[in-house]
């Protein structure tokens, strides 16, 4: 594992002596990581568009509740902490993968999964409280923008959870190989990215919303 990692980190155009690694000319690891960064930037722009529309629409409450009346900072803070911790545990999982410790990887990934799932659970509960109080997304442009922005993040986390489950399955069956390690690195990028987006949501939507 360690060898294959060093091989894949080396950005070289020389022939690699190990022919079991597919096409030695083409450095899969660094290409995939860079490509995924680019994908994350496109996703970031999707969020940027949603943030912009939220910024424009968040005063358009149309007689409904404003952000100050609606948001509960405690819930949002708990959500933030949970998501941040799941990023930390995901990081521990990566460290364990570098040391080729399969069981530890699975353990930390399972913890990340539980944290992510509880984040989604709390978010859905918050949403359902809003809806039951009669403040659903059809009531005003502000609520539309809020549900769309936060909900899209939640949707990303949900897909992340599915991905995480698939990753755990792969690592369970195949162990830590060149392929699964690369996929795990890519997943951890995605997971940290969602954290970053959430920090912005926490700041712009929740914190600034209650000022």
């Amino acid at each position: 594992m360690k060898d294959s990692l060093t091989i894949h980190h080396k950005d070289t155009l020389e022939l690699n002596p190990d022919l079991s690694i597919p096409d030695p000319h083409q450095d899969t690891y660094s290409k995939t990581i860079l490509g995924f960064w680019m994908y994350l930037m496109t996703d970031c722009l999707v969020f940027a568009s949603l943030f912009c529309t939220y910024a424009i629409l968040h005063r358009e409450t149309f007689g409904g509740p404003s952000s100050r009346e609606l948001f509960d900072l405690t819930t949002a803070f708990i959500e933030t902490m949970i998501l941040l911790f799941s990023s930390v545990t995901c990081g521990f999982g990566m460290l364990a993968a570098l040391k080729d410790e399969k069981r530890k990887v699975l353990f930390w990934l399972a913890i990340s999964f539980l944290l992510g799932a509880s984040f989604i659970f709390i978010e859905l509960r918050e949403f359902s409280e809003f809806v039951h109080a009669g403040h659903d997304w059809t009531k005003s442009a502000f609520l539309s923008a809020f549900f769309a922005l936060v909900g899209t993040h939640g949707l990303h986390v949900s897909f992340g959870l599915l991905w995480l489950a698939v990753m755990m399955g792969q690592i369970h069956y195949a162990g830590i190989t060149v392929d699964t390690f690369r996929r795990l690195s890519v997943f951890s990028l995605f997971w940290h990215f969602l954290d970053l987006i959430w920090i912005f949501i926490f700041t712009f939507v929740y914190l600034m919303g209650v000022i």
């Binding site: 722009l45 999707v46 940027a48 629409l57 358009e60 409450t61 005003s140 442009a141 769309a148």
Partner: peptide, 30 residues
């Protein structure tokens, strides 16, 4: 550019399918 298109169409979809108010005349849309 294309992520902006994706996001814009996504919002139009939400307007049309879930009754949101991003781009409607009513309820504060723009």
């Amino acid at each position: 550019a294309f992520p902006i298109l994706t996001a814009t169409l996504y919002m139009l979809t939400l307007d049309r399918y879930l009754g949101m108010h991003f781009f409607t005349v009513a309820a504060g849309g723009n």
